[in-house]
Measured scan of single mutants.
Amino acid sequence: SIKEIEKEEIIKVLKEVNFNKKLASEILGIPLRTLYKRLKEYGI
């Protein structure tokens, strides 16, 4: 599903940037606030 793909992509990017959420949100092209929402939604 799209949610699974998105979750995997978020985890992959977070690992690449050593869990720097600000940098991860910039790489993913989403606002930091949205990233936090996704992390909560996906239980990351």
Rank of each mutant, 00 (worst) to 15 (best):
S1T: 14
S1C: 12
S1E: 13
S1G: 14
S1D: 13
S1L: 10
I2L: 14
I2M: 13
I2P: 13
I2D: 14
I2T: 13
I2H: 13
I2A: 13
I2E: 14
K3R: 13
K3H: 12
K3P: 10
K3M: 12
K3S: 12
E4V: 11
E4A: 10
E4F: 09
E4G: 09
E4K: 08
E4C: 11
E4N: 11
I5M: 15
I5E: 11
I5Y: 13
I5D: 11
I5H: 13
I5L: 14
E6H: 10
E6M: 11
E6K: 09
E6F: 08
E6T: 14
E6Q: 11
K7Q: 06
K7M: 15
K7I: 15
K7P: 06
K7A: 08
K7L: 12
K7F: 11
E8S: 12
E8Q: 14
E8K: 11
E8G: 10
E8N: 13
E8V: 10
E8L: 14
E8I: 12
E9A: 14
E9D: 10
E9I: 14
E9L: 15
E9V: 13
E9W: 15
E9P: 02
E9Y: 15
E9M: 15
I10A: 03
I10F: 09
I10V: 07
I10R: 00
I10P: 00
I10K: 00
I10H: 02
I11K: 06
I11C: 06
I11L: 14
I11A: 05
K12L: 07
K12R: 15
K12W: 07
K12Y: 06
K12I: 05
K12M: 09
K12F: 07
K12V: 05
K12C: 06
K12T: 08
V13Y: 02
V13Q: 02
V13C: 05
V13W: 03
V13M: 04
V13L: 08
V13P: 00
L14F: 04
L14I: 04
L14E: 00
L14Q: 00
L14C: 03
L14S: 01
K15E: 08
K15F: 11
K15G: 07
K15A: 09
E16S: 15
E16V: 09
E16H: 12
E16L: 15
E16N: 10
E16Q: 15
V17P: 00
V17E: 02
V17K: 03
V17G: 02
V17C: 07
V17F: 05
V17L: 06
N18T: 04
N18P: 02
N18S: 10
N18E: 07
N18G: 12
N18F: 09
N18V: 04
F19A: 03
F19V: 01
F19K: 03
F19G: 13
F19S: 04
F19T: 02
N20V: 05
N20R: 05
N20M: 04
N20C: 07
N20P: 01
N20Q: 04
N20L: 03
N20Y: 05
N20D: 12
N20G: 02
N20F: 04
K21P: 12
K21L: 15
K21S: 08
K21Y: 15
K21W: 14
K21A: 14
K21R: 11
K21V: 15
K21T: 14
K22L: 12
K22A: 10
K22Q: 12
K22G: 05
L23C: 06
L23F: 06
L23A: 11
L23I: 09
L23R: 14
L23V: 08
A24Y: 01
A24T: 05
A24G: 03
A24S: 02
A24K: 00
A24M: 03
A24W: 02
S25P: 00
S25Y: 02
S25G: 05
S25M: 03
E26M: 13
E26G: 07
E26N: 09
E26V: 14
E26W: 10
E26T: 11
E26K: 14
I27W: 06
I27R: 13
I27A: 07
I27D: 01
I27V: 11
L28S: 01
L28C: 02
L28K: 00
L28I: 05
L28T: 02
L28V: 02
G29D: 05
G29W: 02
G29I: 02
G29K: 08
G29T: 03
G29Y: 02
G29Q: 09
I30N: 00
I30K: 01
I30V: 06
I30Y: 04
I30L: 08
I30A: 01
P31M: 05
P31N: 10
P31T: 15
P31R: 07
L32T: 04
L32I: 10
L32Q: 03
L32A: 03
L32V: 07
R33A: 14
R33C: 09
R33K: 14
R33H: 12
R33G: 10
R33V: 10
R33Q: 12
T34A: 10
T34I: 13
T34W: 07
T34E: 15
T34V: 14
T34G: 04
T34H: 07
T34Y: 09
L35N: 00
L35D: 00
L35F: 08
L35P: 00
L35R: 00
L35Q: 00
L35A: 00
L35K: 00
Y36N: 14
Y36L: 15
Y36V: 15
Y36F: 10
Y36I: 15
Y36A: 09
Y36S: 08
Y36M: 15
K37I: 11
K37S: 08
K37M: 13
K37A: 14
R38M: 15
R38W: 15
R38T: 08
R38Y: 15
R38C: 07
L39F: 03
L39T: 02
K40D: 07
K40C: 08
K40I: 13
K40Y: 11
K40V: 12
K40G: 06
E41Y: 08
E41K: 08
E41M: 09
E41L: 09
Y42W: 14
Y42R: 02
Y42S: 03
Y42P: 02
Y42N: 03
Y42H: 07
G43I: 05
G43E: 08
G43L: 07
G43M: 08
G43Q: 10
G43T: 05
G43D: 09
G43H: 09
I44V: 07
I44W: 11
I44T: 04
I44Q: 05
I44K: 05
